[in-house]
Amino acid sequence: MQNLARQVLKQDIRAIARSISLIENETDITQKEALIDTLHPHCGNAIVWGITGPPGAGKSCLLDRFIEHLRQDNKTVAVIAVDPSSPFSGGALLGDRLRMQKHATDDGVFIRSMASRGHLGGVAGATADAIKIFDAAGFDYVIIETIGVGQTEIEVMELSDIVLLVLVPGLGDEIQALKAGVMEIGDIFIINKKDLDGADRLKSEVEYVLSLKDSIESDSKHPICMTSATQNDGIGNALSQINSYFAGLRDDGRLAQKRKERIEKELKHIATTKIMASANRFLNIDQRLNGWVEEVFQKKVSPYKLLNKKIGDFLQEINWQ
């Protein structure tokens, strides 16, 4: 494992790729944890973006342009493109990188497609740790492209320093999206396909909703950028707005705050998972469940009574208190 981590730190492409698979497959938890532990001291340098927005907004295409510009500034970029897994077959068709494929031969760009494997929230279960791998490997930017289904994609907000919300005129549900709270996710608002009818109207709608949001948050103005990814128009401007927004976050301490919140969530998450796993092991829930179901079904006991007792016994057993 030390070896794999060492290779990652040396930016070995295969090692990075395999590390991500290791995390995705969860075939060996100890190995996975050892890897992340080794990489942890080297994390925290990458700027992490999330790109979200409805299907058809042109996220991949826009991302392709951003990569182009970032490469011109000699920045290295890692992309995690998340697509849904089929709930029926468990398979997935991962096609996001198609739009970015001209960067395939550029060693400064690493694109990894990731299937959600049943994880909800617009990203995959492995996305958080994959960010760390890219971060430790020294990529300047790590960009997560979410599945793009809307308001359930809160998790991307927790994983990234900045969330770009890509909107596009003519999808017909703009106002609904705004009302439904998708707007809460975004730091930067990008109206793509700005040459289409309705782009300006969409912009004023976003401005209106943001004016409400900004008056509550009052700590920063959320930029709205107009782009046309296919025409390569407005990309440079959007990029400099993103960069200065990021600089603002970094300089007034909000970035550190954000990242601490992220760590807090991560710790809670790990704690919960681990406690669950341990408790499961001790209580042997899986094996005893059938018996319990029977008891509850026959009204011999109520669910709360049963579990308060079982857990109480367990805590006593391990000398809790």
């Binding site: 077959s89 398979g91 991962l94 198609l98 395939a104």
Partner: peptide, 19 residues
Amino acid sequence: LKDAGYEVIYTGIRQTPDA
């Protein structure tokens, strides 16, 4: 292949061997 449960990456046409 997706329907058979695999994760399939598709990159589109005109790919060089290097890519």
